[in-house]
């Protein structure tokens, strides 16, 4: 599980994230929504150790990303929003590198790589450099890399962008399967439809503040009538 405790991030005088407190439980898919510039990516960057919070702490599976960064980082698999990493490495070289960094043993590594690359249909491209991959293929290899060490917590920043419908469906299925084993998936998305279909709970952030957390049912009750998710989202994040 992930526990975000009263986290604030400032850039100069600007508060990108302001006193955010949020618990993402084991066994749930949590969708993180918000308009552009609301603080989604900043929050994800703090969760993964890319940015350090000015105040507060984030605990992942019992390890604080501030106090025990290395242990905390081993708990999650992270898919960043841009898949353009190490483009001159071959697919397999990238995965082996990630495997070594996360200390995945040869047997598990072989089995995971074979299984995941087959599922996402890029097993025939592993011996080619990432620079020859399409955007979607790069996204797939990054996803495989993130899941290689079988992390309990998945943190995914816009993971479905660029994926073809089949791979997108496979990933959603994998997310469901993962949480059914009592694990956690945290992902940000712009696609409200996706959030509506697969999330157990959603959080909406606007101007650095969390304005709603709950299930879609609760969100509908919160919005007092039976509206589409898009309508509710627009109302909640309306700047007036």
């Amino acid at each position: 599980m992930i526990s975000i405790k009263n986290v604030t991030k400032k850039f100069g005088d600007f508060k990108a994230v302001d006193g955010l407190t949020l618990d993402i439980l084991s066994g749930e898919i949590f969708g993180f929504l918000g308009p552009n510039g609301a603080g989604k990516t900043t929050t994800i960057k703090m969760m993964t150790g890319i940015l350090s919070p000015n105040e507060g702490d984030i605990v992942i599976n019992g390890y604080s990303i501030v106090k025990e960064p290395l242990e905390a980082k081993r708990q999650f698999g992270f898919v960043p929003d841009s898949p353009d990493l190490f483009l001159r490495l071959k697919g397999i070289e990238y995965l082996n590198f990630i495997g070594d960094v996360y200390e995945v043993d040869s047997e598990t590594r072989q089995q995971r790589i074979m299984e995941l690359t087959k599922k996402l249909e890029i097993d025939d491209a592993l011996n080619d450099r990432l620079i020859t991959y399409s955007h979607g293929m790069r996204q797939k290899i990054i996803i495989i890399g993130a899941l290689l060490h079988q992390p309990k917590v998945w943190i995914l920043d816009e993971p479905l962008t660029g994926l073809d419908p089949r791979s997108s469906a496979v990933l959603k299925e994998m997310m469901n399967e993962h949480v059914s084993k009592g694990n956690t998936v945290f992902f940000s998305t712009h696609v409200l439809d996706t959030a509506e279909k697969i999330c157990d709970r959603v959080g909406i952030i606007n101007k650095g503040k969390l304005i709603f957390v709950g299930s879609l049912q609760e969100m509908r009750e919160h919005a007092s009538e039976n509206k589409s998710l898009e309508r509710m989202f627009l109302e909640m994040t309306d700047d007036e």
Partner: peptide, 24 residues
């Protein structure tokens, strides 16, 4: 671009993180 076949048994092996980083 033509895809190149891979011998997975030979190519997928554990190594030290430091060595792997230097190689990268």
């Amino acid at each position: 671009a033509k895809r190149h076949q891979l011998d997975t048994n030979k190519s997928i092996k554990k190594g030290s993180a430091f060595k792997s980083y230097v190689l990268k």
